[in-house]
């Protein structure tokens, strides 16, 4: 952490200052819908959320694989406006575990919930980042050689997550962390398995699926392998990332540029 601290704190500082601007903007200019949008309303919404919604969506609203409830802190799939969220809450999502809120729940409280859900993700259009998008794009395929591992819009490698819409799922703070502390919170899909077969051959690859009776990996040459448990002599998990840390190899301003570029990779752009 010591080595990374400098650029980490700089990243946070820059964003902290910027997100203040977000607060001053009139909320929801398009639909003019939500009149219940003060800090007090958000707090009311949060308290209802923690009580009634968190058991599926999680206290941090980051979703839960077991209940199938999605992460609400990024871009929503089914609503792009306050009214859209309001309708989801009132009507539920048919055929899923997402039931409507009780009919007796006053509209005020539903709007407060909408305000809370909104507060989970800052409107990206209001976030101004210090880096240059164009310079970031050059770094991505140039000095950074990120495209050796990552695809954007169908171009690039297969040895890391597709980044085509990475700005929808990662905040600028998280993107900074992705670049300088890749070993933190590696998603299980990007863990690796080192498998020694009954035939004595050892192969290593990304953990595409580890099931109770079989394993599937992709090795560094993009080969896909499937092992039944009875073909395996032993295997181990490696939970570190294969992505190098760029804390040393990129300057602070290069990190800024890459973050600006990555954050611009959103569906609306």
């Amino acid at each position: 952490m010591g080595l990374n601290a400098k650029s980490w704190w700089r990243g946070v500082f820059a964003l902290g200052a910027l997100s203040l601007t977000t607060f001053n903007l009139p909320a929801n200019a398009e639909d003019g819908g939500n009149l219940y949008n003060t800090d007090y309303d958000v707090a009311q919404g949060r308290s209802y959320f923690e009580r009634q919604c968190s058991r599926c969506h999680g206290f941090d609203a980051k979703g839960n694989d077991e209940t199938g409830a999605p992460d609400l802190t990024g871009r929503l799939n089914r609503a792009s406006s306050d009214v859209g969220i309001f309708n989801i809450l009132r009507n539920g999502i048919a055929g899923t575990a997402m039931l409507p809120v009780p009919e007796t729940l006053p509209d005020t409280l539903v709007w407060q919930l909408v305000a809370f859900v909104n507060s989970l993700s800052a409107d990206p259009a209001n976030i101004v980042l210090p880096g240059s998008i164009a310079a970031g794009a050059d770094l991505f395929t140039g000095k950074g050689a990120c495209n050796a591992c990552h695809m954007i819009s169908g171009k690039g490698g297969r040895l890391g997550p597709d980044l085509t819409f990475v700005g929808d799922r990662r905040s600028p703070e998280e993107l900074v962390a992705d670049l300088i502390m890749p070993n933190q919170d590696v998603e299980p899909r990007w863990w690796r398995l080192r498998i020694t077969g009954r035939d004595g051959i050892t192969r290593e690859g990304f953990r595409m699926n580890e099931s109770s009776f079989s394993l599937r990996i992709m090795d560094e040459d993009d080969n896909l392998w499937s092992y039944a448990n009875n073909q395996i002599a032993n295997y181990e998990r490696i939970e570190d990332s294969t992505m190098p840390s760029y804390a040393q190899t990129l300057t602070d301003s290069e990190v800024d540029d890459l973050v600006a570029f990555l954050f611009s990779l959103r569906k609306e752009n």
Binding site: E50, Q52, S54, R55, G58, E66, E187, E210
Partner: peptide
């Protein structure tokens, strides 16, 4: 109304 007084949060993925 639900009456639970708190909750829990995983700090690692289920895997």
């Amino acid at each position: 109304q639900r009456y639970t007084g708190g909750g829990g949060r995983y700090t690692q993925p289920m895997d």
